[in-house]
């Protein structure tokens, strides 16, 4: 690899990890900018965890190269290990000691981080008695003790309710503002929208990289949002003007080749079937639309 660009915190070239005969991560070449919020987005089994572990140096690549331009990094694994019979403060002291930080510094940093994560009032509570969202924040606190310049998080919001997820992202944004580069994996498409750079990964291969805006701009079809009085609208997929249509909450998102033609065709078809239309409008694609289109060819 050529000399590493100083603005990049991580660079990889043809990074590959093979387990048995299967390439869990396949020829991944990427650059992560200093100060980025880099989202690795893909389904279960896509290779997210394997890739993150290689970025952290926890497992050795089978092939390819990786350079890291940061002395310190924090890693929050998917299954974070907190000690349930220790309190929040005790967990923090324990992890701080593992990082070989002196106890005075631990206390000072812990206070700072607990303030950001909103756990300051719960220091003497046992980890076992915390809700899922609070446990996740404690794990984050522990990962931040060494003041890393790079924070790697593996699906930190997995199985967490919508409100706690939003709070967690607020914290990530604040940390990022203070200069921490964030690399995060997620299966949630609305979180992909919050990243500065998104890499869509499927079956070990990076399918597409870019900021959410440009990924959406490169989406080749138009999206129509349809709300109509019918429990099943799958028959729309039979129209030649339609690429793909599917439920999206209580509405239907229809990917189409040409917006006006498709609109007319859908209105005609629904009139024929005597289905009332609440609204039918052209909308920008969401990350979920992009993801579904990009991975369409894959076996699901």
């Amino acid at each position: 690899m050529d000399k590493m660009n100083i603005n990049n915190i991580i660079e990889t070239e043809s990074l590959t990890k093979v387990f048995g005969g299967l390439a869990a991560v396949n020829e991944v070449t990427l650059k992560i900018d200093r100060g980025d919020i880099f989202g690795l987005v893909g389904p279960d089994g896509a290779g997210k965890t394997t890739l993150l572990r290689m970025l952290c140096g926890l497992i050795t690549p089978s092939r390819g190269r990786i350079s890291r331009n940061s002395d310190s990094f924090g890693y929050m694994p998917q299954k974070f290990s907190l000690y349930g019979d220790l309190t929040i403060a005790e967990n923090i002291n324990f992890f701080g000691a593992l990082y070989k930080i002196d106890s005075k510094t631990i206390r000072r940093r812990a206070d700072e981080i607990l303030e950001i994560t909103g756990l300051a009032g719960f220091k003497s509570r046992f980890a076992d008695d915390l809700s899922g969202g609070m446990k996740q924040k404690l794990a984050l606190t522990c990962a931040l003790l060494a003041k890393p310049a790079l924070l790697v998080l593996d699906e930190p919001t997995y199985g967490v309710d919508p409100e706690s997820r939003k709070e967690f992202w607020k914290i990530l944004y604040q940390l990022n503002k203070e200069g921490v580069t964030i690399v995060v994996s997620t299966p949630y498409m609305d979180e992909a929208e919050l990243c500065k750079t998104v890499a869509l990964i499927s079956r070990g291969i990076i399918m597409s990289t870019g900021d959410p805006g440009s990924l959406k701009k490169s989406f080749p079809y138009g999206i129509l949002e349809l709300k109509a009085d019918a429990r099943d609208l799958d028959f729309i997929n039979d129209l030649p003007e339609v690429v793909d249509g599917d439920f999206y909450g209580d509405k239907y998102h229809v990917a189409v080749y040409e917006v006006e033609q498709a609109k007319a065709a859908i209105i005609n078809l629904l009139a024929e079937k005597k289905v009332a239309i609440h609204h039918l409008r052209h909308i920008p694609p969401s990350m979920e639309d992009v993801f579904v289109a990009v991975t369409k060819e894959e076996v699901v």
């Binding site: 893909g42 389904p43 279960d44 896509a46 699906e155 997995y158 199985g159 299966p187 498409m189 499927s202 599917d246 439920f247 979920e288 993801f291 579904v292 991975t295 369409k296 894959e298 699901v300």
Partner: peptide, 9 residues
């Protein structure tokens, strides 16, 4: 939980 959007649909 944890399956792709396509599979969820």
């Amino acid at each position: 939980s944890g399956v792709s959007p396509t599979s969820r649909r």
